[in-house]
Design a protein around this nucleic acid. Sequence first.
DNA 1: CCCCAGTCCTGCGGGC
DNA 2: TGCCCGCAGGACTGGG
Length: 279
Amino acid sequence: MPELPEVETMRRGLFPIIGHRIKRVVFPPIPYRPIAVLPERSQLVLRAQSREIVAIDRIAKRVLVRLDSEDTIVIQPKMAGIVLLTDPPSDCHTRVIFYLQGPSENDRFLYWDRRGLGTVSILDRRECERLLGPDCVGPDASEVDFGTFLSRLKASKKEVKVALLDQRLVSGIGNLYAAEILYAARVHPQARCQEIATVRWRKIHAATIRILKEAIEKEGSTLSDGTYRNAINGEGSYQNEHQVYDRAGLPCPRSAGHRIARIVQAQRSTFFCPQCQKS
DNA sequence: CCCCAGTCCTGCGGGC
DNA sequence: TGCCCGCAGGACTGGG
């Protein structure tokens, strides 16, 4: 479930490849259906090969590998994708290998995706601006200021938890961090955005900034399925800080007399404490 | 415009 | 013990 902290950790993990040149792009033969490569595999090979990597960026939950041609390789890990500089957990889920110029076959990074829901694209500058511009992707949740946060979210007619997941309003928050943010802010996930007082929006904003920052520092959350890893195959540690996510039926950390509940909103699980979190 | 359901995909865990 | 089904959910699509 890579969300903002996990994808930011991927971005930082790729810093060592900046300044290197891509020698070869390889799609390993795999027993599963291949992942989507946009616009097509041959374009990725043609346009990435022999280009130098000049920067690694992130927009929302996508990693952007900037090339000296002004093309950008956009990696969207979705549910189960990661980028790696080291050997993958299993060879059969390696989807793309980018070999770099250098003395060793180990000079490479790869995209590994256990479920194959992710995508790898190569976009020129215009396509990047169109597909990843402010009309499609809201301001980054880890650094959005309160005024922007309030003006974009408070007008929404959605329930607050559903609104936090809308990448057009504010980008980077997924199901896990939405639950943790609203628990920290003591706001009920089904509260309507327009009915939440500004002082409580301030708490939601503060919790958003704080939790995403802490999760980035801890290199994200590696859940029990173990899929998410940093670029050198290490686990994150923010899972040890989770208060409510995937903890239905367990005691509320704030008061042992309460229990964490699970409901479904927009076809997704929501975890929260019905006693601590008020509309 | 909004909202909801379906889709992609594989691995795992609950239940019988 | 083994098997099957449902669930996990990010982003997108199509229908109402």
